[in-house]
Amino acid sequence: MTTYHGSCHCGDVRFTFEHDAISSGLHCNCSICIRKGALMSDFILPADQLHIDAKPGALALYRFGNGVAKHYFCKQCGIYPFHETLRMPGHFRLNLGCIEGLDPLNMASKVFDGKSL
């Protein structure tokens, strides 16, 4: 297991977690993810395994549709670092572009059909 560190662009939202080596990611074609264009983790983390350290008031939340999925972003720089999933509330996917030492542009990826949910 490796301890990974991530943050938004300005650093007001930081997070850490442990996971095996990350070598691939996931794109989703739902209406918000297609616009974000981020490569997300192809694994999910239970809330107790994602350690979030955000400045007070820095982390904002956006919900749409049925409101179950929670899309978080930094109020200062606007970057999306992670979201709570629709299919498994209480579990998170991470923006791989926010994780130190990863190059999401050179990772294999799959497409998840969130548009059809």
Rank of each mutant, 00 (worst) to 15 (best):
P89S: 08
T85H: 15
L86H: 07
G78F: 11
F73T: 04
G101T: 08
K75I: 07
H71F: 11
G90D: 03
G90H: 00
G101W: 11
I99H: 05
I99E: 09
F73L: 08
L86K: 07
Y72I: 05
C74Y: 02
R93V: 13
R87A: 15
M88T: 15
Y80L: 08
L94W: 01
H83I: 03
G78W: 08
C77K: 14
I79E: 13
I79P: 04
C98W: 09
G90M: 02
G101H: 13
C77M: 13
T85R: 15
V68F: 00
C74L: 02
K75D: 10
C77P: 12
H71Q: 09
M88G: 14
G97D: 08
R87S: 15
V68L: 04
L94T: 00
N95R: 04
H71A: 06
F92M: 06
I79S: 11
I99R: 09
F92R: 07
Y72R: 06
P81F: 07
H91A: 13
H71L: 09
K70C: 04
A69T: 10
F73H: 12
P81G: 06
N95K: 05
Y80A: 06
K70T: 06
I99P: 09
L94G: 00
T85W: 14
K75V: 09
L86Y: 03
F92Y: 13
M88A: 15
I99C: 07
I99L: 07
C98I: 12
A69R: 12
A69Y: 11
G97M: 07
R93Y: 13
Y72H: 12
N95D: 05
P89E: 01
C74G: 04
F82P: 01
C77S: 14
H71R: 07
N95P: 03
P89M: 05
G90T: 00
T85Q: 15
K75N: 05
Q76R: 11
E84F: 00
E84A: 02
P89N: 07
F82Y: 03
C77T: 13
G101A: 12
G90P: 02
G97N: 04
E100C: 10
V68I: 08
L94R: 00
G78K: 09
V68C: 01
C77Y: 14
V68A: 03
I79V: 13
L86E: 09
F82W: 03
E84L: 01
M88F: 15
G97V: 08
A69H: 12
R93M: 11
H91M: 13
G101D: 12
G97A: 08
